[in-house]
């Protein structure tokens, strides 16, 4: 709960910024606030980690349908995530189009935040479902790996 207010404030700033014509990456990045790294992968329903609804994982998950948030509340992030962040320590993480670590995937480096999955496409697994599709509302499972 502790980063909810921050996240809402960030959303408000972003909305205010979007009143203008263009949001530059710089202004968007300045608006995003999130909790510090804690060894988890985070996924949010909204772009820019803009709403509280999220899931987080320490280990691997082969289906994002049942996941839990920071408060331990059960959530469903299957085909619903719009922004993701790797808050692990040294590991990187493959994000898959399908459950069971199947389908096309893309690797998220450590410490990295992708604020808007509409502009990110699955770039590995070319004959797999979802290859080259925008990742928004498509990620279904993940696997921690040593290197992207």
């Amino acid at each position: 709960m502790r980063f909810m207010k921050k996240a809402v404030a960030a959303g408000a700033i972003l909305v205010a910024a979007m009143g203008g014509a263009v949001v530059s990456p710089t202004s968007a990045s300045a608006a995003v606030t999130a909790p510090p790294p804690d060894g988890h992968l985070y996924a949010w329903l909204d772009i820019n980690a803009g709403e509280y609804y999220h899931c987080r994982w320490v280990g691997n998950d082969d289906n994002w349908t049942n996941c839990t948030d920071w408060d331990g509340v059960a959530r469903n992030m299957h085909d619903r995530a719009s922004s993701v962040q790797n808050r692990g320590y040294t590991k990187e993480v493959n994000l898959y189009n399908d459950a069971g670590q199947r389908g096309a995937w893309r690797c998220l480096s450590r410490g990295e935040f992708w604020p808007d999955l509409r502009n990110v496409r699955f770039n590995r697994g070319s004959s797999e479902t979802g290859y080259n599709y925008p990742m928004e509302n498509r990620i279904s499972s993940h696997l921690w790996v040593s290197s992207c």
Binding site: A30, A34, P36, P37, Y89, F113
Partner: peptide
């Protein structure tokens, strides 16, 4: 763990 991950990767992704 949180303190160590933050020490390596920094706090917010900004």
């Amino acid at each position: 763990q949180e303190a160590l991950a933050t020490a390596l990767n920094g706090p917010e992704p900004v």
